[in-house]
Structure formats: C-alpha cells, structure tokens
C-alpha cells in the first residue's frame, strides 16, 4: 500500500514497467494455489527474495519472470530507487535469456480467478476509500498520508433492501439491518495503514441506515441516506511482534450520503456516502500498534465503475456467506 505513493507514481518506473506485462495478485492464495497458477508462481518465488523461508511464510514483493517460469529478478521494497534497479536488471536478464527458454512448452493450463464468478454483475459495487482525518499529532512519514481501498459487493436481491419498488417522495425507510451490519463490520474497519480483518458479528453494537426520498421526477428518485455505526471488539490478540495482550478495537461514527435511484433500472444511478468518526485499537497487520488511542477516521463509499481493476473482491468476502 505504501508503494502506491512511493513507487508507482514515479514516471521512470511507469515507463520501465511498460516494457513488461504488469500484473498484480494476492500472494497468500496464489502461493497456496494447487492449480496451474500456483505451481507456476512457485517456480519463480522459490528463487526470489523469500525463497529460503518456510513454505507457509509470505512471498510478497515484486517479481519479473518469463512466461516459461524462468526467474528474472525479485525484490521487496517500497523505495523507488530499488525498484528502478530491479526492473532494469530484470529486463537485461530477459534480453540475455535464450529464446528457447522464454516460453512454456504447450499451452498454459486452465485456471479460474477465485472470486470472478461471484462478482455481482447485476447488483451494486461500492469502492470504499479510507483515510485518517486531520489531527495535530499525525505522523509525518508515510503513515500520516496513508489511505486504502476496499470494495463492497451487493447482489441484485440486496438492492430491494435499500429501496421499495413503490418509492414515492417523502418516504423514510430503514435499510435492511442485516445488510447494514455486514457492510459496517466488513468495511468500516481500520485498514488505513494496512490489512486488517472484519469485526465479528457480536462487535456490531449499532448499525443503522435510513433512506429518505426527497423527490421523484419521472423515473428518478433523489435520496438522502443517514446512518450511525458503533463497532467494538474486546479480546486477546497481538498487534505487533511482542505477543498477545488484552485488546479493544472499534469504530464509532456517522454516515451521510446522497444519490439518485432509477425506478426503471431498480438500482442507484449515482450514490456517494461519507462516514466520519473515531477508531481505536489495532490488529496484527494494520500498523496501528503505536496509535491505539481514539483517532479521527473517514470513509467514502462511491459506486465503482465496472473495470477489471475495480472488480476486486471485498477483502473479507468470506464473511459475506456467499
């Protein structure tokens, strides 16, 4: 996540990356995959920077490879200079690689994206951006500027849980509580500095969203959304390398949004919701061990365009029960 700002915005790196086919993937599932992709990746990763680590350790980082699985280079760094050197050296390795070793023999095996068939084509997807809100004691380094993205998915049948079919002006409707609770515990999490996990169901102390129809003009219904959320989890877990301790984490805040619902399409034409509140506590990999006290945080939920890069599955999709 740090690299989004420190590495990939660099024009020289963008140019170097353009010599290759640039790819992204989630490392844990890729490394453990028993199909064609996992077997091919391990040919490369086991020659890379973490290749000597036990097999259940992460292999995250940057790799260059030939389609055959020949290793060209690897590094795990968020420093632009390291990445430039790695890309240049990898390109030289590709140019030196005999043509007979560049491609795999035969056609690539079959492999399916793990979540592609769950993408709600006829439903709704929100892009959820999170960031700390300004404060006087903000860190001056990357952590003070950090932000992150997740995607929230809703199936077609979920849309009716936002808006009744016979919408008219002046309507005030509670959005389905189960849906709001799922959204809150999976997406109003503190992922600003790094990965975290969803809150458990019993951490949801309050999760409400009210939809108010402000006007109806032909097919289009202008709506306002207001909500309140309080999440709190207590227990024993580690927030860094020093072991497990009694912990608490949570979020408490307010949601406010506006949008236009199409009666004909049965979905939102436009929608934007902002959440603001406070978070506290940490989890093992979200880099908050030094920042456990209450701090201001905000989220923006927007309708995601249907592009390949915006088809990423929710970070906690297994919590959806789909």
């Amino acid at each position: 996540m740090r690299a989004r700002r420190s590495v990939w915005a660099d024009p020289e790196i963008q140019k170097l990356a353009g010599k290759f086919i640039p790819a992204t993937d989630e490392v844990t599932m890729l490394h453990r995959d028993q199909g064609a992709a996992g077997k091919h990746f391990r040919l490369v990763s086991e020659k890379g920077h973490y290749g000597r680590n036990p097999l259940d350790w992460t292999r995250q980082g940057l790799y260059c490879l030939a389609p055959s699985g020949e290793f060209l280079g690897s590094v795990n760094s968020t420093r632009a200079e390291d990445v430039k050197a790695f890309l240049k050296e990898s390109w030289e390795a590709w140019e030196k690689l005999p043509k007979g070793r560049r491609l795999m023999e035969g056609a690539p095996g079959e492999w399916r994206d793990r979540w592609a068939d769950r993408y709600p084509v006829d439903g709704m997807v929100w892009k959820v951006t999170s960031r700390d809100l300004p404060r006087a004691n903000a860190r001056k380094d990357w952590a003070g500027h950090a932000w992150n993205i997740d995607y929230a998915w809703f199936r077609r049948e979920d849309l009716a849980r936002f808006m009744p079919a016979d919408a008219k002006a002046g309507l005030k409707k509670d959005v389905d509580g189960e849906l709001v609770a799922r959204f809150a515990r999976c997406h109003l999490v503190d992922n600003v500095r790094g990965q975290t996990i969803a809150f458990p169901a019993d951490a949801v102390k309050k999760a409400t969203m009210v939809l108010v129809t402000e006007s109806v003009k032909g097919d289009r219904v202008t709506v306002r959304l207001e909500g309140e959320v309080r999440l709190e989890q207590r227990g024993r877990w580690a927030v860094d390398d020093t072991g497990e301790r009694e912990q608490t984490r949570g979020f408490e805040g307010k949601l406010l949004g506006a949008g236009v619902w199409s009666l004909k399409a049965g979905t939102f034409e436009s929608l934007e919701i902002v959440a603001a509140g406070v978070r506290w506590g940490a989890t093992r990999y979200n880099f908050r061990a030094d920042d456990l006290e209450r701090g201001a945080i905000g989220y923006v939920m927007q309708l995601a365009p249907d592009t390949p890069a915006d088809r990423m599955a929710p970070a906690s999709i297994w919590e959806y029960g789909w």
Binding site: A23, T24, T28, Q60, Y63, C64, A66
Partner: peptide, 12 residues
C-alpha cells in the same frame, strides 16, 4: 516478460 506485484491482500 511479466512483472508481478503481489502482496498480502490484493494490491489493487
């Protein structure tokens, strides 16, 4: 050739 960015959690 391919250049891969892979992380714990999808980079995108």
């Amino acid at each position: 050739p391919i250049f891969l960015w892979t992380m714990n959690g999808h980079p995108l």
